[in-house]
Write a protein that binds this DNA or RNA. Sequence first.
DNA 1: TGCTATACCGAAACCGCTTTCGAAAGCAAA
DNA 2: TTTGCTTTCGAAAGCGGTTTCGGTATAGCA
Lengths: 344, 344
Amino acid sequence: MKRPTLKDLADALDLTESTVSRALNGYADISAKTIERVQSTARELGYKPNQNARRLATGVAEAVAFIIPQNHSSIAEPFVSQMLQGLDESMAQRGWDLLVSHSLAAEDEAQTIHRLITSGRVSGVVLSRPFRHDARIDLLQQSGFPFVVHGRSAKSDSYAWFDIDNEQAFESAAAHLISLGHHRIGFVGAALYFNFAYQRLEGYKRGLHEAGLAYDESLVRVTELSDDAGERAAIDLLNLADPPTAILCVSDTLACGVLAGIRAQGLVAGKHVSVIGYDGLKIGRHTNPPLTTMSQPLAQSGRKLGDMLLAIIDGEDPTKHQVLKRAELVIRNSDGPVWAQQHH
Amino acid sequence: MKRPTLKDLADALDLTESTVSRALNGYADISAKTIERVQSTARELGYKPNQNARRLATGVAEAVAFIIPQNHSSIAEPFVSQMLQGLDESMAQRGWDLLVSHSLAAEDEAQTIHRLITSGRVSGVVLSRPFRHDARIDLLQQSGFPFVVHGRSAKSDSYAWFDIDNEQAFESAAAHLISLGHHRIGFVGAALYFNFAYQRLEGYKRGLHEAGLAYDESLVRVTELSDDAGERAAIDLLNLADPPTAILCVSDTLACGVLAGIRAQGLVAGKHVSVIGYDGLKIGRHTNPPLTTMSQPLAQSGRKLGDMLLAIIDGEDPTKHQVLKRAELVIRNSDGPVWAQQHH
DNA sequence: TGCTATACCGAAACCGCTTTCGAAAGCAAA
DNA sequence: TTTGCTTTCGAAAGCGGTTTCGGTATAGCA
């Protein structure tokens, strides 16, 4: 009835626990014959090592945690699950556990991290949506705990990360819009303590600058990452005396709201005003109109992050694991040449 | 540098490990004064019990697993993350871990379950999207392992579950359509080994029956749960000699595809043909046209499931934990009265 | 045949915490 | 002061593995 223990196995084989243990773990000082014998009866007895015992003995947790970004449930949706999928693949392959964790109401995220790394439950963590100056990263670094981050903070030279070149992405998105004739381009972004939001704004500015266009602060809106916020921002922008003819959004969720805002003003996106989102969510194919967006390889990111983390736990140098990918513009129908009527 | 152990604490306090342990765990045979003393120096030394050791000693894993439904990444997206959010809240409150797990490529889900419950890593699991006849549930039941399921299988009397009344939902959705004058209603469903798909089909049938309408098998399509599949099914349905004037879908993802299919046929949803989805995803507000759908309380489900599981692990009778909620019809713009032209 | 390497396995300590059991100390009642 | 409980702790045995350190056979070699 109860699960067989190492001792049961040893008794059945007429060996000692230590021998059986080493046989199972592939030590060199056990004869091939014995190993075979041990493995086969282990199988037939259905022996599974007790993970807690083994973890206690070895001191390694054989588990990593994914810190769920808090207070951003709407944006987190597609994000989290895709990341998780990849991470899990990576961990499963090694037989490790993946546990998810978000902050308790009473504590901040730094405390969450602290609790996690001092509990001995995990041997590494993956962070996402880092802030520009991120206390969690500082904490992790000075404690020497293995971690990787999806995205990066302002100074990112000394830890492992996987990121998309946000500046490049938004620079090229802006360039695309400019090539369509737009020169008043709005920007709907998120709080700048999110480094991705900051970087994307920088990219946008650079795109304007490259084209010799002036940066006009009145065309940028910083909001929370929800569709409703996007809608409000769009309406706001469109009611300007000299409204933008195109709007760049830092997320697809936001862009959905912007599309709604444009409709609410009686205009049609892709015709009267262009909009470009970011994330490349599949759902963008079904919006009205289908959303042009910058697509990032979310699916693989998780997998890659997991592999990186494992390598770091194995002792590799974190700074050897810094990968920067490019987002790719997928053009659907929410962008187009600047609306001619506008000028009459 | 190293984390303080129980022994360190005991030495510092000039007590034994056992006393300190009991003091920390609120045993009655420790004086209030000692407890206070122990707690305060524990705090100042930053003592955190080693979870693995404690789990080994107590035999309880203090963790539960969420089995990620496999091969349905597209549908799983909003689903998984919302569920996780609630589950995590429930576990965090108790200081337990939540780990996610999906099947390795090489094994089926029953094996995954088996591996999980024999590894000692978790003391309970939550399953989602159960099949009508689900080997995983059978396995779990006969092994006596604590579990809860989101949804339920065909015979669900002897375990704990949280479900939406799918039959009722689709019956009322059908009734709604019928009240709008539709009497040729298509159904785009998923493989019937998914019990939710089966139940929804039954509900659809019952809705027709209640209204005295005959069930016409040529109007139902069984596909995978993706937008593309939905689009194909819709086009297929619309090309029938006597096409449906409304289409019911078992998921919002599918419904998105159906909307696309309708557009592809040069028709407009909500006018020429009505469509109703299921899930209540926020994104449905941004489709073209905004999707009318049956909304389920995904957010709370996770939380509720977690609490149920914890109660069961504590020894409560699983059959006391069976809750059935209702979905609610949220009307947006993809439904409407039957298109008059159709009859001329 | 005798001696030293080598291959294989057993003994035992340890990982850090929990929990039962019994002993000492304290206190009240007698 | 002695008896009889209580209260409060300490001792010790696990929980189920891992790993170092030796100790036998056995084999290799002269």
